[in-house]
Design a binder for these strands. Structure first.
Lengths: 249, 249
DNA sequence: CAAAAAAATTGACTTAGATCAAGGTCACAT
DNA sequence: ATGTGACCTTGATCTAAGTCAATTTTTTTG
């Protein structure tokens, strides 16, 4: 499997020794715990749609996404399903100290995880202060994201939800609008159904609202999954968020 | 101000030196940083309904709730409002490293905060490994709570939302049902409006659903804000959650 | 390439919860 | 005790999004 640099977020720390550049790993390198880490590390690739772990299953591993998109979700007995985390490269999977998964984790596209056995990882977490610091940073970032997501789920209209999801995906792929052109284009790596699970809607409503935004000239579509936004500011207006919004510095 | 022990969650660590027992403080005591801490610490009490900080305001302090109930919320330009955090005694307020608040914080009942200046607190966070560990634990717990909340907001019916909120409040007040009696009773320290902000509903719907649960014999009401649950298992069924649910070990 | 499967769209109809509009209760301050 | 304002309830009506049911488009695969 070939891994190309552009798939990693700019938050990645550059690390010469480490063949795979992603945040959780490189944070330790500073402490030259490489040997230990290298011994623990293993990679596993899952096909699109495959389950990675089910809620209640034993969590032998923690790790992080190095390639692809995964999702964290919760399912009710009658089948109602809510996504509660969208995992892109550099995102962490699992909770140190927790033996059984609280959520379902599924591969949305093909996904490669860099995995560590949980027990030795927890020891490292105790021994390496930098790693703990990094984990805290990541947990707090996720908490902020979860809280914005709660506003979306509790108070936004279907159209605002779709517009918000599009801006979230665009931002997370670091396709910032070119200040001059103000135009962006990106792939939705989610099916309409996955979007509906993210947004707390039905897939029919997702389809209708995407097409409404298209008819209103806010977005263009190519092959159903590729979005072109001519006027990013216009899309931002459709999210219902504050004009300055989401700077969370 | 007199503070009585029963107002603190059992998660509190006992600490002889510290006059106020709450988790964030006592974690440091282990490292005998008491002198430094004592110098930094200040208490402030807010009346019910008072704003503690507005989104975008400068955050000079971080701290934790020692008494009362506060809430974290987000407001859209047109006034739609979503609660994103319910802060009970021992809960942390603010994010180390962040200069401006991302959310509104308001006192729901009368609230006392134990506050630390942010900058020196951040230094402590760098110097005291235990404190960082404690903060990580707390952030991960909040993240789990946020994810359950997302399921509630995205997929539950109004009746399930109310039943869920009641069980959440009962649990957070540690009013576990007596195994023999299976009956609990507790105070809702939230108005119908605050409940609607928590649940992503209108206050009319909250009122109707609370009264529907009452008519159906799931709960009894005393003075509008005091709830008596004769059969806690029955209430749990009404939440829509798995029978075993929410053990998140 | 054709057939089958998967994903997406579109239409007709229903419904849970929102909205709008009175009233009723309760705490407490004069 | 009584009046004022905050809080809550209840009813009538509306509507955004859900549900059910085809149909079309895209992708996969034999």
């Amino acid at each position: 499997m070939k891994i190309i640099a552009s798939q990693f977020t700019p938050a990645s720390i550059d690390c010469n020794e480490c063949p795979i550049k992603h945040r959780a790993v490189c944070a330790y390198c500073e402490k030259s715990e490489m040997a230990l880490l290298e011994a623990m590390k293993s990679y596993k690739t899952y096909a699109a749609g495959d389950p990675i772990i089910f809620a209640g299953d034993k969590m032998a591993f923690v790790g992080s996404v190095v390639f692809g998109v995964a999702r964290l979700s919760q399912t009710m007995e009658d089948g109602r399903k809510q996504m509660v985390g969208l995992l892109l490269p550099s995102d962490f999977v699992g909770r140190p100290g927790r033996a059984y998964s609280a959520f379902d984790v599924e591969a949305t596209t093909e996904v490669t995880l860099c995995r560590f056995e949980r027990k030795p990882f927890e020891k490292l977490l105790r021994d390496i202060p930098n790693l703990r610091e990094r984990m805290l940073e990541m947990a707090l970032d996720e908490l902020d994201a979860a809280r914005e997501w709660m506003l979306l789920l509790g108070r936004k209209t279907a159209r605002e939800k779709i517009a918000s999801l599009l801006t979230i995906i665009a931002r997370r792929q670091n396709i910032l609008p070119d200040a001059a052109k103000n135009e962006v284009s990106f792939d939705l790596s989610l099916t309409r159904e996955a979007m509906s699970e993210y947004l707390g809607l039905t897939l029919e409503t997702v389809s209708r609202q995407i097409n409404a935004l298209r008819k209103d000239g806010v977005i263009k579509l190519e092959k159903k999954r590729h979005v072109i936004v001519n006027d990013f500011a216009r899309l931002l207006e459709e999210t219902g968020d504050d004009a300055d919004g989401g700077f969370l510095a």
